[in-house]
């Protein structure tokens, strides 16, 4: 059940990324490039995605997930150095290549060698992230 629901969700996600054009790095960079030929498409994708999710969050009230268990415990609304530093690093990489994790997976079949090298580098980065995060924690804690 959980595996089938995951497959369904992943299929919708892959289809959405594909038809929205978000696997085209020119569109993503076009949105970030306010000093160049600005492309508003990404804002429509974000808006279109937030609407169903808004209703989904409202439907979680007083219910349990279809496959059983419980809805995730939400993190406390606290801002910390991990969130800010991580988002800045992610944003720079996202701007440089025009790819983020979802589209990098969706475009695996047609992204060519560049897409594969990006994916491999991203996986290395993800593997190193827990160690780097611990170093950041140590720096952020006053001795």
């Amino acid at each position: 059940m959980r595996i089938l629901l995951s497959l369904l969700s992943g299929s919708l996600f892959g289809a959405g990324l594909f038809v929205s054009g978000m696997t085209d790095t020119r569109k993503v960079q076009g949105w970030l490039d306010v000093f160049g030929d600005w492309d508003p498409t990404l804002a429509f994708v974000m808006g279109g995605a937030i609407i169903p999710m808004f209703f989904a969050w409202r439907l979680t009230a007083g219910r349990t997930p279809l496959a059983g268990g419980a809805f995730p415990e939400l993190p406390r609304p606290e801002l910390d150095h991990r969130l800010i530093i991580g988002s800045v690093l992610f944003g720079v990489g996202w701007g440089l290549a025009g790819l983020c994790p979802g589209p990098s997976v969706a475009s695996l079949s047609y992204g060519g060698a560049g897409g594969l090298v990006f994916m491999a580098s991203m996986l290395v980065g993800m593997g190193a992230a827990p160690t780097i995060a611990q170093h950041l924690d140590r720096l952020a804690t006053p001795a």
Binding site: G10, G16, A49, P52
Partner: peptide
């Protein structure tokens, strides 16, 4: 973009409400 975004949101809704 809007259509694809809707599908992405639907994917998130299935993942949340389902799993």
């Amino acid at each position: 973009g809007l259509v694809g975004g809707g599908l992405i949101g639907l994917a998130g809704a299935v993942y949340l409400l389902g799993n």
